[in-house]
Structure formats: structure tokens, C-alpha cells
């Protein structure tokens, strides 16, 4: 046990792990975090607290993670390489550990030109940092935890005990390099991996097999990312625009059919598509968990947190295991 986090305990117990996502608000009010934490609590082993996702300023991941933890939801704090240099990163890691946070997901972060894909102003003129990349950040966390050393070599009296995570986009270009990309992160010390949203399970399976052949999957817990589809339009958009996401046509057709079944009734169309989306999600979860080496799922119900309870129950993943701390 490296961190003693609930997520780590569940993974080590051999049960399929479930993580969800909680996006902090663009406001100084903690209410939304508290509210979402109560919706997710009990239906996942830990929830990612995004770190200024799509390069939009929100309550910081560490602060929001602390609030979620206070409400009884185990957080996975996220740390992007976009906004901090190695000094700020390590200072925040020490601070986060001092606050009792136990999981950290290392990510590159969306480029600041993103600004919520043009929906918000964002800060396209901001200077990004990228002092270190994700693989290097993973290495820094491991060195801090296991060697009690800062990146620069100075001693840490009480090291931060994090369960170290990273992300993987198995179907991103250049696809044949992606298994090696994963290997580098795992070799650097990533103990759990959350993937980009997967709809094409066959392709995912073949990428997992390549990773397994490199001996990667025995050294990390791979959690397959599932983005809960809400509408046919959303699936089409993701297929065309989201990096590393391909949606097989039969899935888009199923959602389109659900929409058509409602005729002109828009409310009904929304309801039928959401129901179909949940069905699809449950199927994807089952398919993912059958892939050798997959140790759990990371379910993203974007702006639809109540769906997690329904999905987890329908997938037979409820109640979540209660593995007592040592």
C-alpha cells in the first residue's frame, strides 16, 4: 500500500474500481462541490476533481478536492503541467498531502487556447508553463514519495503519500506509439491509468493487448474511460471533434433511433436518448471489464452527475466495496 487511499485499496482488493468526475465551479462558492459530492458519494471509489479543465478558471483542484473529502467523497486531485512549474507543483503536492489528499492524477492539461472549445472567453493569451511533462511529473511524485527527495535532490522530511495516476489516449494519433506512451508513464511510476472515453471497444481491446504484450498492464491499474452519451448529436460531435475518440456508427444509430422514436416531442426525445445513453454506458462498462488487464472504469457523466448512481447500479457495481484501511 503506497498511499492508503480508498481507490488504491479497492484496486488492490481485486474488485473492479469505479471512478467518476466532479468539475469545480467558476465561482468562489463551495455549494456546488458539496452538492455534487453528495450525489456521487457511495457510487464511486473516488472522483476526479478537474484542474481548470479546458483551460477555464475554476476553483482549484486541491481546494475542491479538500471540500469533497470533507463531505465524504474521496477525491482524485488532478495536476496539469500547464499551469505550474516544478517548484509550484511540489509545493502544492506537499500542501495537498498535508490536507489529507491521497490520489493525484498527472495530466498535460488542455492548451490555454482552448477556452472551453470557444464557448467561453478563457485566457488564450496566458503563458503556459510546461516546465515538465506528464511522464516527468509522475516521476517527480514517485521520487518525492518513495525516495523522500524533491526533484532537485533536497530531502523531504515527511514525504507526501500519493496514489499516482496518469491518463492514456489509446486511440489517439500516432496510434502505434500509444502503447509505448503508456509504458513510459507506467515505468515512471503511474499506478493507475484513466483512459480517454472509449466507444470503439474492439480497437481499445487491440491497443490493450499491445500494452499487455509490453508488460505494462501488470504494473498498473487500467481504468477504461466511459463518457456517458446524452444524445446522438453528442456522439457525432465527439466522433468528429474530440481527439482520440471514435464512435462506431451502430452506437450513433441507436441514439438516433431513440430520438426518432419520440417524434416531435423534444422532452421525450431527451428522455429516450438519455435512457439509451445509460444502456450503452452499461454495455460499454461490461465490455471493458472483460478485457484482460482492465481493472475498472472511469465514468464521466458530464454535467449529469445523478446518472452515475443509475449506471453503477445497472452495471451491477453497487454497492461499492468497503475495504477497511490497514
Amino acid at each position: 500500500m503506497k498511499s492508503g487511499s480508498n481507490l488504491e485499496r479497492v484496486i488492490l482488493s481485486g474488485n473492479p474500481a469505479v471512478t467518476a468526475e466532479l468539475g469545480p465551479p467558476m465561482s468562489a462558492a463551495p455549494d456546488e462541490i458539496v452538492h455534487k459530492a453528495h450525489i456521487l458519494k457511495g457510487f464511486c471509489d473516488a472522483a476526479n476533481i478537474t484542474d481548470c479543465q479546458t483551460a477555464v478558471v475554476r476553483i482549484s483542484s486541491i481546494a475542491a478536492a479538500f471540500i469533497a473529502q470533507r463531505e465524504g467523497l474521496e477525491p482524485v486531485m488532478q495536476m496539469t503541467c500547464r499551469d505550474r512549474n516544478r517548484i509550484a507543483m511540489q509545493a502544492d503536492l506537499l500542501g495537498a498531502a498535508a490536507l489529507g489528499l491521497k490520489n493525484c492524477l498527472c495530466i498535460a492539461g488542455d492548451h490555454q487556447k482552448f477556452g472551453a472549445a470557444g464557448k467561453l472567453k478563457g485566457h488564450p493569451g496566458a503563458k503556459n508553463v510546461y516546465d515538465v511533462d506528464t511522464t516527468q511529473l509522475v516521476g517527480i511524485l514517485k521520487k518525492m514519495r518513495d525516495e523522500s527527495l524533491q526533484e532537485g535532490g533536497d530531502k523531504i522530511e515527511v514525504p507526501p503519500k500519493f496514489f499516482i495516476g496518469a491518463t492514456w489516449t489509446p486511440m489517439g494519433d500516432p496510434m502505434d506509439f500509444r502503447p509505448y506512451n503508456l509504458k513510459k508513464k507506467v515505468d515512471a511510476g503511474a499506478e493507475f491509468i484513466q483512459t480517454q472515453g472509449i466507444y470503439d471497444m474492439e480497437l481499445f481491446k487491440s491497443q490493450c493487448e499491445k500494452a499487455r504484450n509490453l508488460g505494462v498492464l501488470e504494473n498498473t491499474a487500467l481504468l477504461a474511460g466511459i463518457i456517458v452519451p446524452k444524445s446522438a448529436m453528442m456522439l457525432k460531435y465527439m466522433d468528429a471533434n474530440v481527439s482520440g475518440v471514435t464512435v462506431p456508427k451502430p452506437l450513433i444509430d441507436r441514439m438516433a433511433k431513440a430520438k426518432e422514436a419520440a417524434g416531435d416531442d423534444k422532452k421525450k426525445a431527451k428522455q429516450l436518448q438519455e435512457e439509451e445513453g445509460i444502456k450503452i454506458t452499461v454495455e460499454l462498462i461490461h465490455q471493458a471489464l472483460e478485457i484482460p488487464g482492465v481493472k475498472g472504469v472511469h465514468i464521466q457523466a458530464i454535467d449529469w452527475e445523478p446518472a452515475i448512481e443509475i449506471i453503477v447500479k445497472a452495471a451491477g457495481l453497487y454497492p461499492r466495496p468497503n475495504i477497511p484501511a490497514e
Binding site: 498535460a108 492548451h111 487556447k113 482552448f114 510546461y130 511533462d133 489517439g172 509505448y180 513510459k184 480517454q196
Partner: peptide
């Protein structure tokens, strides 16, 4: 765009960068 040294981020789309 992110000065990464260990490989691509998740933002590659058809060989293009997420910024454009």
C-alpha cells in the same frame, strides 16, 4: 505546443495539434 519531451499528449487529432 506544450513542449512535451516524452511523447504526444491526448490532443492529437488526425495528425494535427489540439490548438488548431
Amino acid at each position: 505546443s506544450k513542449s512535451l519531451l516524452n511523447g504526444p499528449c491526448g490532443g492529437t487529432n488526425n495528425g494535427k495539434c489540439e490548438i488548431s
